[in-house]
Simulated scan of single mutants.
Amino acid sequence: MKMAVAPLRRGLPLDAPCERPPSPREAARWITTHPARRSLHINDRLPRLLHHCPELRTAHDLVRRFAGMLDNRDATLLPGWLDDLAKSGLPPLTSLAGALREDRHAVTQGIATPYNSGVNEGRITDVKLQKRLMAGRASVPLLRQRVVLIAHFRRQYADRPTVSPR
């Protein structure tokens, strides 16, 4: 503490406080969040981050273009976007482009139609969670009962009317 206060006593100028750089998880969240839903602070910091890191700028541009395809339900831009993804020079994005090309028809349908498998994925996640929680401690009938109860509670929760904000 004494060392921190000493420059103040001597009248030395203090360094401006530095902002902590965002973690990789924060940067990914900033990039994937729609610009209208970001806070003003993030909308101020993100351009500075993208200015200092061209790889992130490339990833940001590709993510925003894909989000535009999802928003407009327009899969006609997908082949060009996949080409740009493959040419990005970033190994994770290049491998993603290859994987998406292999399943291009499903990706096209996912972009162009309003249907998704979110409910099924949620149920599968519930089953896997119960399996992990009860590993070696429960019989199949007990696991089945727990999964049925979770599905029942989820349905009850989904059917409740939402309260509008005042």
Rank of each mutant, 00 (worst) to 15 (best):
W81K: 03
A106T: 08
R64K: 13
R29I: 03
I150A: 15
S88T: 02
H51M: 12
D83I: 14
H105S: 12
R37K: 08
A75I: 07
W81S: 08
E19G: 01
G118W: 08
Q109S: 13
K131Y: 10
P21W: 09
H152A: 14
L82K: 07
L56T: 08
R101Y: 00
W81P: 00
L12Y: 04
S88A: 08
V119I: 11
P7I: 10
E121K: 06
A28S: 11
A138L: 01
A106F: 01
L14H: 00
L90D: 06
R9S: 02
D15I: 05
M1K: 07
I31W: 10
L78Y: 00
E19I: 09
D15T: 01
G122F: 07
L56S: 03
W81A: 04
L142C: 08
M3K: 07
D83W: 02
C53L: 12
Y157V: 14
D15Y: 01
H152V: 12
I150P: 04
L49H: 06
L56V: 13
H51F: 01
H41A: 14
L90V: 15
G118Q: 02
N43R: 14
P24D: 11
T58N: 13
Y157A: 15
P21Y: 02
D126S: 07
M69D: 09
Y157H: 15
G68N: 09
I124H: 04
I150M: 15
Q109F: 11
K87Y: 15
R144C: 05
R64G: 12
A59W: 13
G89P: 08
A135I: 03
G11E: 06
G98V: 09
L46I: 04
I31F: 11
D44Q: 13
R37V: 08
A106G: 03
S164Y: 14
Y115W: 14
R57D: 14
G68L: 00
A27Y: 06
R101G: 03
H152D: 15
